[in-house]
Design a protein around this nucleic acid. Structure first.
Lengths: 131, 131
DNA sequence: TCAAACCCTCACATCGATGTGAATGTCAAG
DNA sequence: CTTGACATTCACATCGATGTGAGGGTTTGA
């Protein structure tokens, strides 16, 4: 598919798709006319990229992580320098930190929302709200 | 405590502590000489802030969710405009998305690391469980 | 044939988080 | 009294992700 369709299907600006490619997160073939040509799998790949970016990972790290995710078959010790492995372990730990932080905060928000709603319930006719 | 100690104890640049204050994420008292004076609780608060920033939340959002976290007692419907509640719900959903994305990616990394290690110890782990 | 809707590259702009340094004030210890 | 370590404010710089637009080629359909 061409860049426009991929953009639409992933809710991602064309500009960014080209940027991700430039950053080595995405590979696109080329049609004879020079247009980028994406395989179907790119949709999920882009969604992955965006999810990780939204979660605070920089492209440099995503570049290292994506091969583990998208090519579950292409695992060879050869591509894994001990340095890369260390980075992956490190990044896994950081992901765990993020997850825990987000879980805690989400619980707190839920608690707050519940509390507010409990307070809004009891007096059912109390809607003299002056915004 | 003064800014230097807080910086050291949280591993955060002084510059950033001032920035967080400017962004309304942190409140500091002032000593007679004009130095910032932080209460003990700021340590955890700063760690929260940094965790959320690392997880991709902008200060604007952190400013809205911090009160839910740090003042579990100061809950009053009065401060909760329906607009704020909507934002909170929205942000909670986004946090869930992030959590899921991070969980998936972390699992993928773990799977990769395991696979690599199985390959590095061919003799020992011949019939291990394939995660 | 022409216009609209795609695509390309390139480059500069913006925005939020962070770095850095200048110019200055405060305070404890030699 | 001075020096060194801390603090202050202010302002400009950097960096990564993203926006935007210029200048131009390609495809499609009226």
């Amino acid at each position: 598919m061409r860049i426009g369709e991929l953009a639409e299907r992933t809710g991602t600006a064309r500009r960014l798709l080209r940027y991700y490619e430039e950053q080595g997160l995405l590979v696109a073939g080329r049609s004879p006319n020079g247009y980028r040509d994406y395989p179907e799998g790119c949709v999920n790949r882009v969604l992955q990229i965006r999810g990780l970016l939204e979660s605070g990972l920089p492209t440099r790290i995503i570049r290292q992580i994506l091969p583990c995710i998208n090519d579950p078959r292409a695992i060879h010790v050869s591509d894994a320098t001990p340095e890369t492995l260390a980075t992956l372990e490190d990044e896994r730990r950081r992901m765990t930190d993020r997850i825990e932080c987000l879980l805690r905060s989400r619980e707190a928000i839920s608690g707050y929302l519940e509390a507010v709603r409990r307070e809004q319930r009891p007096a059912a006719a109390r809607h003299e709200v002056t915004a």
